[in-house]
Design a binder for these strands. Structure first.
Lengths: 224, 224
DNA sequence: CCTTATCTTAAAATTTTCTTAAAGCACTTC
DNA sequence: GAAGTGCTTTAAGAAAATTTTAAGATAAGG
């Protein structure tokens, strides 16, 4: 976690840096708005602590400029005055939170935790095996540059095989888990889908193959 | 934008709801912590306004329980006392921000904007995908020189698809987020609106298409 | 070889999704 | 309060994709 501190009061800047490095954050400190903007534009920070009153550009302007340049780094504004007007202005200029001086170190840390927790959203759930990646949300199967869509049953069967890469999955297993408990699907149904899947694997030029273990079931294998 | 209000003081709850509905938010109001948790677990809200002092579970407990169940909805805590201790506790319990009573309506709105901005939902006044630009305040959809107006449901559905360009959105998702939590809309309702949207996309000559993923949902795609 | 298990495919059956037109509703306007 | 407007819902047949079936081909094991 790397935090940028933009604060002109040297003693306060040092105090902030000290509090944060104690907690294993890495910090960079600059003392005016122009430098704050330059550093912020590097887009390497997990959060920016930004004083409102600064020589050169003020904090609002820095925040606004960063947002205009599509920098999404969470910004925590520091403000001396507590009036609502400036609070509102702070949030609307693109900042994510503000804190009034003086503040307790614990409050600073809590706010930073809140700000940084929100990042890292977008969890694409995927599973992989060999050179294959299966997108669990869209049922797309990718390999190298290529990609193809699996329909529902293909998807469920491949997911099952990928979830148990070392074991052999019996046709019975596949039927009860994909067709359902009391289905009357036959082994041939499974065989047909295995065939469809193999066709797609070969279209993708994957090194992964579906191996039949006679009288036992199927298992994924990777061609060396 | 759908907001859950958890507040036992009836008059305050009504005031909150009124402020928000004025600004075109949809609100649901409950008056105790247990209901707050139940509603929050439905995961259909864009933000939750949560009073600390509540009959039954208090606000901290509700927030903590929601986070334990992986509900990431931004939470704005309302607290009567201004001490730092409780503020910090509020943020560490999983809340994203807090506000002390009494507060100015403008501050509430600014905080909500800040909270919801952080989610992918982008409160800029436009979102784009491919050659499409959707104006979020006028509901106009633009492409190249042409432009057309979307009505409410078309708009909400397209916005949802554009906000999750990589994932598949299920019909269930669309129904709970656009028709609402306890609606009895059928899949066919969604299908009808998807059809309306496609007609408008083709009128605009857009390269964007709405792809059906059978048994899964819909996803935006761009014709190369 | 002969038997049995597995593969592969095309066509039939089924399910899901698409598209429309018409009906229903909520608001305005006259 | 009648008529008009714009959006939403309903319903039903059409279209499209998936799933099942079935039959012959291929491969493995004894």
């Amino acid at each position: 976690m790397r935090i940028l501190i933009v604060e002109d009061e040297v003693r306060l800047a040092e105090a902030l840096s000290h509090i944060l490095t104690d907690k294993k954050y890495m910090t960079d400190v600059v003392h005016n708005g122009d430098d704050g903007l330059d550093y912020g534009l590097s887009d390497i920070y997990d959060a920016i602590i930004l004083d409102v009153m600064l020589p050169g550009m003020n904090g609002f302007e820095v925040a606004k400029s960063l947002r205009k340049e599509k920098i999404q780094t969470p910004i925590l504004m520091l403000t001396a005055k507590g009036e609502i007007a400036s609070k509102v202005a702070g949030l609307d200029c693109g900042a994510d939170d503000y804190m009034t001086k003086p503040f307790a170190p614990e409050e600073l840390l809590a706010r930073l935790r809140a700000l940084t927790r929100r990042q890292g959203e977008v969890l694409l759930d995927e599973t992989s095996f060999g050179d294959l990646t299966l997108n669990l949300s869209t049922c797309d199967l990718m390999c190298g540059g290529k990609s193809t869509h699996l329909n529902y049953k293909e998807f469920e069967i491949l997911k099952l095989l990928m979830a148990n890469p070392k074991a052999a999955i019996t046709k019975e297993d596949i039927i009860t888990k994909v067709w359902g408990y009391d289905s009357d699907a036959s082994d041939n149904n499974v065989e047909a889908y295995i065939s469809f899947l193999r066709k797609k694997l070969s279209f993708l030029n994957s090194t992964v193959s579906i191996n039949a273990l006679r009288k036992v079931g199927y298992r994924l294998g990777e061609e060396k």
